[in-house]
Design a protein around this nucleic acid. Structure first.
Lengths: 242, 242
DNA sequence: CGCGCCGAAATTGTATGCAATCTTGTCTTG
DNA sequence: CAAGACAAGATTGCATACAATTTCGGCGCG
């Protein structure tokens, strides 16, 4: 009845504020609205979302666990600034996990899920044709969503969570080390992968995923740390060493 | 000098209290001193470790991220009570990840690391011959450490963290669904795996790992939920459903 | 002019207090 | 006697206050 509807309609807005702040911050980081190295002041974030520092700390702790934020004792939380080595490890992990997801997904995928994939691909290709930073952000976001959808279809909640973390961190890595701003997913790889899944050829989908990850990583400039590390040090924590 | 020694000797005790409490609780859960479903009262844990609830909450939140603790809003934190489905997903994830770790580890393993493995295996076999619950706990712990060492040798920090979570959750699963208390690792599988790594045969090590995981999972009783779920419900949260 | 020291301001770490919610035992009522 | 209502107690969610630490500007000194 209307009563029951109202009791459900009112509270969902204020359901869990720490989770809400965490999600907003994560979106901002993944969309590159918050640059790597940016300091996340507890009080500032708190006033921004109109909550106390207690709640902000919970959100920041969650993001730290996901690897999107790095906290240093008595110094605060910063948007993560992955090193080239960490970047390689992110992609190595994805190369290990995603073919397995493809195998599982190919067996389980339903026609409804295929439709959902198609819709996402369509959205993605539309974004590719647009210009401007907003479209770029949305494109990176949508590209990640493709891989998350793959993980969802595979049906393993634990691996899905791992992939959520890996996709988010990939976005950070691309932000830091991406050469061209755009070529991350312009190859149409996603379409081919979906086609393989549709034919329930998980092996093929896995192979395509590997070359797809190769494409992404090939666009990165992970050349050795010296100059980049210097820049990192200057940007983020120049005043730290003893 | 003695001064430097003291400045290092004093603070490490009180370095980060939330992390310390988290580690203590995790050990207790993994060692089965805290049964699945046990309520972790914030005030109680706080007085136990002589800290405020603030610190306890941080520790519990961290454990919730790792999947060892489940929190319910306004109801508190409980030692996780994985369902058979979750248990299957834990092992499916390990089957996907560990052969990849073996491949990397076989390439990178050093003689020093081989020695560390041997020492651990020796420790493990000693525990196997002992009786009593303390030895059982230590044995489960040691068995997990073998897999964590493998992940360390593989050299990927992200996958190492994933494995830490998976190993800990495996321990919970074995506690809940293990048939015999002991057969989890009595097959000597670990020795064979190490031998393969030593010969840098990562493929073989990976295959051995898969059969090893099969052995562990074969000792579980994951038959479908009905009666087990009932028991879970009775034990842990009988008063929750509407 | 550079360099290190010192103190105020800012920021984080932790404890505590209060409001909201859930739990539990009792009592009423059919 | 069973079932539901209700109130007291216990517990969590959150905000705030205070202590500990770091940061940063200025000052004196080589």
């Amino acid at each position: 009845m209307t009563l029951a509807d109202q009791t459900f309609a009112l509270p969902p807005v204020a359901e869990d504020r720490a989770a809400m702040i965490r999600d907003h911050l994560r979106d901002a980081i993944v969309d590159r609205r918050l640059a790597p190295g940016t300091k996340l002041n507890e009080a500032e974030v708190g006033t921004l979302f109109d909550v106390s520092r207690t709640v902000v700390r919970a959100a920041l702790q969650a993001l730290a666990f996901e690897g999107l934020v790095k906290t240093e004792r008595n110094r605060g939380a910063f948007v993560a600034n992955p090193t080239p080595e960490e970047a390689r490890q992110v992609f190595a992990s994805r190369r290990l996990i995603e073919p397995g997801l493809a195998l599982a997904a190919a067996q389980r995928i339903t026609s409804g899920e295929v439709a959902a994939f198609r819709e996402r691909l369509h959205h993605e290709s539309e974004l590719l044709h647009q210009r401007g930073p907003t479209a770029r952000r949305a494109e990176i976001h949508a590209s990640g969503d493709f891989h998350l959808l793959l993980a969802k279809v595979a049906g393993n909640a634990i691996l899905l969570r791992f992939m959520e973390e890996l996709v988010a961190r990939s976005s950070l890595v691309i932000a830091l080390y991406g050469r061209s701003g755009a070529s991350s997913c312009g190859h149409g790889d996603h379409g081919n992968i979906l086609a393989a899944l549709e034919q329930r050829d998980g092996e093929l989908a896995g192979r395509l995923l590997l070359t797809h990850i190769d494409h992404i990583e090939a666009d990165l400039d992970l050349r050795n740390t010296s100059n980049l590390a210097l820049r990192d040090a200057l940007v983020t924590d120049a005043h730290r060493l003893p």
